[in-house]
Simulated assay, not measured.
Amino acid sequence: MNTAAGGPPPATRPALSTAGSFTPTDGATQADGNGAFTFTDGTGTYDSDSHAVKLGFAGGLRMASARHGFELTLSDVRFDSGAGEITADVTSGGTTRNDVPLADVTVTRGMASMTTTLTQEAATVLGRPGYAGAEGDPLSVVRTATPSPSPSPSDPASPSPSSPSSPSPSPSPSPSPSPTPTSSSSSTPSPSASASGPACPPRLSPPPRLRRPPRRSRPPRPRRAPPRRVRSPTARSAGV
């Protein structure tokens, strides 16, 4: 969270305080002794190339003076380190002007006690042309850490109430299988359960079937003619 401290030129405050008032609103504060004003809850952007910040702050400031005849309210106070200026929305007579440049800022690296100078627009808003170029309060932009909320202490002696009508489920008597098998030092292996079920023995593929080689064709055997019986001439003559 960022805070900005500054305000109208100190020379204007006695005149306004005797004939009017400064009233911080919506979280803005004023230091004691009619001191500087502080606006809180600054948020915005940071340019890593130019190292410039643009911040908008919460809170407002109501200024009223019957002697000078004006009543106005500053809100949406913004600081742009790149442009070196402070702007705010100014409401007066029921009309609001947005982002009115109120002061030029001489920006320093630490952004602490930076010199401010009121602009011509600020002199017009305040109704005093002589305020243009007048020196305002030094401006400081401070980054403050937001405290983290502390945890609420719990009473250990008071147990949390439980509903008697809804008993808590009892654990199942059957042990749940362990998803990770554990090794055992015993020499006899014991089966261990797994989340995927019991392991099955691997299936053996049948042995390959042997095929007989094709039979070779044999050449046909030559057929032999049966022997013919030849009668001898002597036997033929003996029969005559």
Rank of each mutant, 00 (worst) to 15 (best):
P14M: 05
G20C: 04
G20I: 05
F22P: 03
G33S: 10
T38N: 08
T45E: 12
Y46N: 06
D49N: 09
A58G: 07
A58P: 01
M63C: 06
S65T: 11
A66G: 11
R67H: 11
R67T: 15
H68C: 05
H68S: 15
G69D: 09
F70N: 13
L74R: 11
D76P: 01
V77F: 04
F79W: 05
D89K: 06
T95P: 03
A103Y: 01
T106P: 06
T106M: 07
T108R: 00
M111W: 03
A112W: 08
L118W: 11
T119K: 05
A122T: 02
T124G: 05
R128I: 14
P129W: 15
A134P: 02
D137P: 05
L139C: 10
S140K: 01
V141Y: 04
V142L: 12
R143K: 14
S150W: 07
S152I: 09
A157S: 12
S158M: 08
S158R: 11
P167K: 04
P173W: 12
S178Q: 09
P181T: 10
S190G: 12
P201H: 10
R203Y: 13
L204W: 07
S205H: 07
P206L: 13
P206G: 05
S217Q: 09
R224G: 07
V230L: 09
R236N: 04
V240Q: 15
